[in-house]
Write a protein that binds this DNA or RNA. Structure first.
Length: 428
RNA sequence: GGCUCCGUAGUCCAAUGGGCAAGAUAUCUGGCUGUUAACCAGGUGAUGAUCGUUCGAAUCGGUCCGGAGCCGCCA
């Protein structure tokens, strides 16, 4: 039986069997206190020399932290036990004795990261992994209820999605190939049959970005929608993100409490999200004493200033063309800008989504690519899409670990993924 | 790509301005019948690599390797 179920049933005097890993252990002569952890929680087992077989007691004394064990015993209410209940052991079987566990109190971040394969057993890491799972399920449920098809774009590609960023390259049977940094263009192709699609895939960035919000390998949740403009695109995103927040708030109360995120914080995430134009953002920043003019990009500082006082995400819309990618749609109301929007998470967490309406005019795309010296050849198939019944369409990309970081209020994005890849870490 | 910092037992760290490498924790041995990452006694175990300065280097300088933080780029 799982520990949480034993505690919940709470029938004193009944016999239960639990199994898991030793979380804490201490002994004093003829009694051993062994706190056992399983997926659902922790429970103390008291193993008395007089109550169990001799070899069971010897095993309980000898077993170090993280040994795997099975324990049967009578449930007893006891204030001295963590959680208020303990199991008075009638048998205690060590499945596998652990060597001294490297992870103890007062560890440095580098050491913990070197031992990530063991660190993920911690209760905090477990809570984050559960929240991430709930968030993914919540998103998939929302997509399904809103007529999106989940699709499976390729990871190996021949083309960069956006000119500037660095890609991981590899040899593909003698040909140059790259690890995908976005499925966007493939999703655009699929909208002509499925209309609304989404994908959850790994994305790769080869920039040496050493910041609390960058991974070189991360999970990308991307949506693409036919017959949808920039405003409709934002509506989809705010509903999606709100659905994610509310599914976590509903299903992961205990895990949120364990990592110190208030459920009420997530309940404040409700559509519609505030929309401000890039130009308005510049004015606001100037009001906050940040000297900026049209054309300057919003960096870390700027995003923090815009969002640190907020409770819910905001959209910043209509960025200058020089700051964004060639495939975005012209904004006819202000031709200096594109029809695009970034979603910034509150409390200073910053950008979690980048999205836009896509340019459908073949000639405009060619012209921009030539201006920006982007080679046309790898993009032939993408440009082709404009020749066969192109329709208004929009899409977005959400950084899953960035959302996990915000939802869980984590200091660093590497704690939002079990085995983080950063410029200096690819092990374990 | 730019700037800054740090490498001492398994781990966390100390060592005034160049002079016996200290402590904690883990582990091991012994003790303890109610612990709360227990307590008491004892044992094992360390200066990232290399070149140099010096009577003498954890400490000063150079090079290399590894890691951390901030910015840019982005999700």
């Amino acid at each position: 039986m799982h520990i949480a179920d034993v505690a919940r049933s709470g029938r004193e005097g009944s016999e239960y069997s639990i199994r898991g890993w030793i979380y804490r252990t201490r002994s004093s002569g003829s009694i051993v206190f062994s706190v056992i952890r399983d997926e659902t929680g922790i429970m103390q087992c008291t193993v008395k020399k007089s109550d169990v077989a001799q070899e069971d007691f010897a095993g309980a004394q000898k077993a170090l932290i993280e040994s795997s064990v099975e324990c049967s015993g009578l449930l007893k209410k006891d204030e001295r036990a963590p959680g208020g209940f303990e199991l008075r052991a009638t048998s205690f079987h060590v499945v596998s004795f652990a060597e001294p566990f490297p992870i103890t109190a007062n560890q440095s971040e580098p050491f913990l990261l070197d031992n990530r394969h063991l660190w993920i057993r911690s209760r905090e890491q477990t809570a984050v992994m559960k929240i991430k799972e709930t968030l993914l399920q919540g998103a998939r449920t929302w997509f399904r209820e809103n007529d999106f098809f989940e699709v499976t774009p390729p990871i190996l590609t021949t083309n960069a999605c956006e000119g500037g960023t660095t890609l991981f390259s590899l040899k593909y049977f003698g040909q140059d190939a790259y690890l995908s940094q976005s499925a966007q263009m493939y999703l655009e192709a699929m909208t002509a049959s499925l209309e609304k699609v989404f994908a959850v895939t790994p994305s790769f960035r080869a920039e040496k970005s050493r910041t609390p919000r960058h991974l070189t390998e991360y999970w990308h949740m991307e949506g693409e929608e036919a017959w949808v403009g920039n405003e409709g695109n934002m509506k989809i995103q705010e509903e999606l993100v709100s659905a994610i927040a509310s599914s976590v708030a509903k299903e992961r109360k205990d895990d949120l409490a364990l990592i110190g995120r208030k459920v009420d914080d997530l309940k404040a995430v409700e559509p519609p999200f505030e929309r401000i134009t890039y130009e308005r953002a510049i004015e606001l920043l100037n009001g906050k004493g940040k000297e900026m003019s049209f054309g300057d990009d919003l960096g870390t500082d700027e995003e923090r200033l815009l969002t640190e006082e907020l409770a819910a995400p905001i959209f910043v819309t209509n960025f200058p063309k020089s700051l964004k990618a060639f495939y975005m749609k012209d904004n006819e109301d202000d031709l200096r800008t594109y029809k695009c929007a970034d979603m910034l998470a509150p409390e200073g967490f910053g950008e979690i989504i980048g999205g836009s309406e896509r340019e459908t005019d073949y000639g405009k795309l060619i012209r921009r690519m030539e201006e920006q010296k982007i080679p046309l050849e790898p993009y032939r198939w993408y440009l082709d899409l404009r020749k066969y019944g192109s329709v208004q369409h929009s899409g977005f990309g959400l950084g899953i670990e960035r959302v996990v970081r915000w939802i869980c209020k984590l200091e660093h994005i590497r704690d939002a993924t079990p085995f983080p890849r950063t410029p200096s870490r690819i092990y374990p």
